[in-house]
Amino acid sequence: MFRVIREPIDLKELVTYVTDPSAGAIATFIGTTRNNNEGRRVIALDYEAYPEMAEKELARLGAEAKQRWNIQRMAIVHRIGPVQITEPSVIIAVSAAHRDDAFQACRFAIEEIKKSVPIWKKEVFEGGEVWIGTQSGQRLPRR
């Protein structure tokens, strides 16, 4: 399950999706909106995506994780639009026979999302707004 959606993300739905009789572990990661960043008081994050390509890239990194670790199933859902303080912007769930593979694949997924998936966050803070990442360089995705 690799999706970009506008509605709040349902953790239970992802966990149900990756549940597998041969799995002894399910690792989840929840990225949430924090109320501060680099000294600014954050009001909300506003996400935008190139949805068709973002879902394709999520599926690609899921396939890569499956090659590198012994995992059963993976689900990644990223929310777009405004995400308020404490709300999840991304949830990842991975099932595996053993916990090491589940943890590592989960970590890999969130790091890759931040590098190569066409999703952008605008930080709305007290006194302004800024597209995160536009002030600095960008690493090329591994190919």
Binding site: G31, Y47, A49, Y50, M53, A54, H78, S89, V90, I110, I113, K114, K115, S116, V117, P118, I119, W120, K121, W131, I132, G133, T134, S136, G137, Q138
Partner: peptide, 10 residues
């Protein structure tokens, strides 16, 4: 064609 500015998902 899409020109992709620095991504910042997550």
């Amino acid at each position: 064609v899409v020109f992709v500015p620095p991504v910042s998902g997550g």
